[in-house]
């Protein structure tokens, strides 16, 4: 019984040797793989593959691609890992013309800047030409070059409350109503600092206050269609809504509204 249990040392040594060898091999492999992957990493970081090769821009029309890339602070040749995508987005948003910006990395080393620009809602007429007005109420510092878009032209507006209200109206008013606004004059009165007058494409003049402009103008089509298109005048929507012909002699011909208007004390 006892004899069988005893295994001779000669029998055991080769096995031990083998086991030891295996262990050493495995350790070596591990060390080597770590070593090589580190080397690969360094090689990658040194190679042009880790550098930004190209920057694509999407969604720009107000700004040129070059302007957007400059504004973003991104550069080709910088490491794609430290390019600062978040910082670039913030920098882009600082420009008044940009509403949304996102920077994404493409494979292997391209960057894509996607921007949503502020819409142009109007032009501000100033010395030197027509300056685009954006939907956030900002007036660009460069006048439009070439052919202008068909947008309302604003006069005497400055950046501030009045323009903000107008920009808001531009977005809330139905497209078809906003499309009838041709010219808008900022015309503050003593008791109404937000008074404006506007010329419409259908030939009427509108007198309004910006504080209610957006809500009242919704009804513009139903007001103007009630009026005789041959008798031009001012549609006053400051308080109620009434029509006053330029030529009082024509007032009578303009139907019921004008008749009632004639009663105004």
């Amino acid at each position: 019984m006892t004899k069988q249990k005893v295994i001779s040392i000669e029998d055991r040594i080769p096995k031990l040797k083998q086991i030891r060898k295996k262990k050493a091999n495995r350790r070596l492999l591990l060390l080597l793989s770590v070593f090589f992957s580190l080397i690969l990493l360094v090689v990658y970081l040194q190679s042009p593959l880790s550098k930004v090769a190209e920057i694509h821009v999407q969604g720009s029309s107000l700004m040129t691609k070059q302007e957007i890339i400059e504004q973003s602070g991104l550069e080709t040749g910088a490491s794609i890992w430290t390019a600062g995508k978040g910082r670039a987005e913030e920098a882009l948003l600082k420009d008044d013309r940009i509403k949304e910006a996102s920077v994404t990395a493409g494979f292997p080393n391209d960057l894509m800047i996607a921007v949503v620009e502020q819409n142009e809602i109007a032009y501000a007429a100033r010395k030197g030409g027509l300056y685009p007005v954006l939907q956030n109420g900002k007036i660009l510092s460069e006048p439009v070059s070439g052919a202008p878009l068909q947008l309302p032209i604003l006069y005497d507006f400055k950046e501030g409350e009045a323009l903000d209200l107008f920009a808001e109206a531009a977005q809330t008013l139905p497209n078809e109503v906003f499309n009838t606004i041709s010219e808008v004059y900022y015309d503050p009165k003593k008791n109404d600092s937000l008074h404006i007058k506007a010329f419409m494409t259908d030939g009427f003049e509108v007198s309004a206050t910006l504080s209610t402009f957006a809500e009242k103008m919704v009804y513009y089509p139903s007001i103007s269609t009630q009026l005789n298109p041959d008798v031009k005048g001012v549609i006053d929507i400051e308080v109620g809504s009434y029509f006053k012909a330029y030529d009082p002699a024509q007032q009578q011909e303009t139907g019921e509204e004008a008749l009632e208007e004639a009663e105004m004390p």
């Binding site: 919704v218 009804y219 139903s222 109620g240 809504s241 009434y242 509204e257 009632e260 105004m264």
Partner: peptide
Amino acid sequence: SLQYLNIQPDETI
């Protein structure tokens, strides 16, 4: 009041 409500907006815009 009648003048204020003068041109009634209609809903068929």
